[in-house]
């Protein structure tokens, strides 16, 4: 898995949306899902912003114009957060666990199996069973730590429900239907004469502006693929 990560080392993500999609893309490709069903499976823009305000994720590396640029460490941290959440750890604990960790340490955290114990005895038994007393592969929570104040299902259900409403909303016109442009004019064909259509596979077309020149940069191309993948995926989920 860590090897797979290596291919992403030099990628940049323009904006929170791209970062979310890249993380989702990666998690899907390795087939991770949350077991508990209490936390969203994949990070979205909102959760990323939330992690940033909570200090779990660093601010963007830089700003280009209005776009925030994120890098490999952001993606990696995000993947680790999701993994730890999947183990049922509350955000406050995750924050402590990842604080000050280097890239290598985060990679290790992401790549290894992690065991969570709420009882010191259980932990000792586990350690004895694997024959060492190293702390690095085990997380011990006090019982308060693992019991979030709110029943987790209730909390995340509310949030997920509201997020689903936002998704629904983006399918709908912003304004009242009367103000909606006639549906016959699809968004991409504005200024039709300047666009070329290519059928990639049946049912999927690519529209390219006549004057457009694709950069040779592999990084850039990878990003475009992630974006397309994100679009196709989000359509699937609706």
């Amino acid at each position: 898995m860590v090897q797979l990560l290596q291919t992403l080392k030099h990628m940049e993500y323009h904006g929170v949306r791209e970062l979310a999609r890249a993380a989702e893309h990666f998690l899907r490709s390795i087939g991770t899902t949350q077991e508990k069903g209490t936390v969203a499976d994949y990070p979205n823009e909102r959760t990323i912003r939330y992690y940033i305000t909570e200090g779990l994720l660093d601010q963007a590396i830089e700003k280009r114009g209005v776009t925030s640029i994120f890098g490999y460490e952001h993606l990696l941290t995000l993947l680790v957060i999701k993994k730890l959440q999947a183990l049922g750890l509350p955000i406050s604990v995750i924050k402590d666990l990842i604080a000050g960790k280097s890239e290598d340490e985060l990679e290790k955290l992401f790549g290894e199996e992690i065991h969570v114990f709420t009882d010191k005895k259980e932990l000792d038994v586990f350690r004895a069973s694997i024959g060492h007393t190293d702390d690095s592969d085990a997380v011990l929570l006090d019982s308060e730590g693992i019991t979030p104040a709110a029943p987790p299902s209730a909390g995340n259900e509310a949030k997920e429900y509201l997020e689903s409403l936002l998704m629904e909303r983006s399918d709908r016109p912003e304004r009242l239907p009367a103000r909606r442009p006639p549906p016959a004019a699809p968004r991409l064909s504005r200024g039709t004469s300047d666009w070329r259509r290519y059928e990639i596979i049946p049912g999927v077309e690519l529209h390219v502006s006549r004057g457009f020149r694709a950069p040779k940069d592999l990084n850039w191309r990878q990003r475009v693929l992630v974006l397309i993948d994100g679009i196709l995926d989000s359509r699937e989920r609706r």
Partner: peptide, 28 residues
């Protein structure tokens, strides 16, 4: 609601107070 959902009180009261003088005329 999303803001409230970010920090559920757990046993307390989580509430949105909607204050308006108008009709919903944008969006849903």
């Amino acid at each position: 609601g999303l803001q409230v959902s970010e920090r559920l009180s757990g046993g307390g009261i989580d509430r949105v107070l909607l204050i308006t003088d108008g009709q919903a005329n944008v969006g849903e």
